[in-house]
Design a protein around this nucleic acid. Sequence first.
DNA 1: TGTGTTAACTTTACAGTGTCAAGTTTGGAC
DNA 2: GTCCAAACTTGACACTGTAAAGTTAACACA
Lengths: 201, 201
Amino acid sequence: MTEKKTKHHHGDLRNALIQAGIAILAEDGIDKLTLRRCAARAGVSHAAPAHHFKGVEGLRGAIAEEGFVIFRGYMQRELDKVGDDPHRRLKAISLGYLLFALENPALFELIFGISAMLYLNEVQPESPGASYDMLRQCCAPFVAEGAESGPVEAQVWSLIHGFATLFLSEQFGPVDRGNPDLDAFNKVITLLDSLPLADRA
Amino acid sequence: MTEKKTKHHHGDLRNALIQAGIAILAEDGIDKLTLRRCAARAGVSHAAPAHHFKGVEGLRGAIAEEGFVIFRGYMQRELDKVGDDPHRRLKAISLGYLLFALENPALFELIFGISAMLYLNEVQPESPGASYDMLRQCCAPFVAEGAESGPVEAQVWSLIHGFATLFLSEQFGPVDRGNPDLDAFNKVITLLDSLPLADRA
DNA sequence: TGTGTTAACTTTACAGTGTCAAGTTTGGAC
DNA sequence: GTCCAAACTTGACACTGTAAAGTTAACACA
């Protein structure tokens, strides 16, 4: 308790609301994420969040920003397990991407929901950039000197994002999110084996 | 007006509500799709839809069902433009997939929203199956005799679904949905060129 | 130490949402 | 012609976001 910021009233309400939101997402799902519930969980009145976020979109944006940090953690953890082989790194970051989606489905939906990009672009061009940079680095070995990197990145991102989305929504069959069968993932990801390494000077 | 089904009161309220919902999606976006707005647009009281759909999820499911019909139309239209070459057919169905997303973004989001699969599975195991069958047929030439078809289908579907989702949410840059630049699509889809044709008996 | 100022927060209020429980109307079977 | 059940309306309630007005408390300044 000594670490209490002893700010004006609450201390650190903005962060408390974000953490409340993340907990609500994990426990109750995305459509239970409301301003009033976050406020109640943080122990303040229902109108308090308005002083820290611009409406409910602002709150969602702030939660998404925090979500990207967690997201990057998943990818980094898998990257740390493998060496320098470019194809293995590609698979590792993809696995991290998938595991994040499986273990944080509501947060994944919040972050990558189609309408989500509206507030993301406004609120924070920072964090998604950092996530994208991780992907970019993993794709770099497959981009020829002087060539544009966009197509390879789009191929890799499309494949893993599409698979994660469809797998999570059980389009490929029932999923035990606690102990997922990664057989389908391993087979799909072989498509990236056909990506040729660029010979670099 | 003579074609009025002269059912009990309204005539064909269920269908009118679905059409109202599709119009609202196109005009106002997905978060304006509410029971009360659909009811108002169809000219009935706010509680009337309850007699045709099980809550708002039921309405969304019914609209999704209709959306899949439109979706299949887009894919079929592109397939009709090409011949028998398997790789070209794969690109054609993918283009139809993308064009549907671009021209019906809210409907696409409704259909493929991550939480969407809940009511889809309950309400109608029919239409999505029909859509999936189209994909399956396009993938068949790449599946060896006796081999399982799942992996190839998952690769193709993941790639195009991921690309459509990310492209639509402008992750690859600004998009003019009326006149989209399909350059990125054409480059990403080349990844499918590496799919080997199965030599069939 | 006392006094303002202002940001943080609360209270109150209102429109919109889904959903339930009653009513009312009407098409059609008998 | 009567009656019934389905279709639809009306009214109510809890919940949502948001705005306006009121209250509290931290801090600067005298």
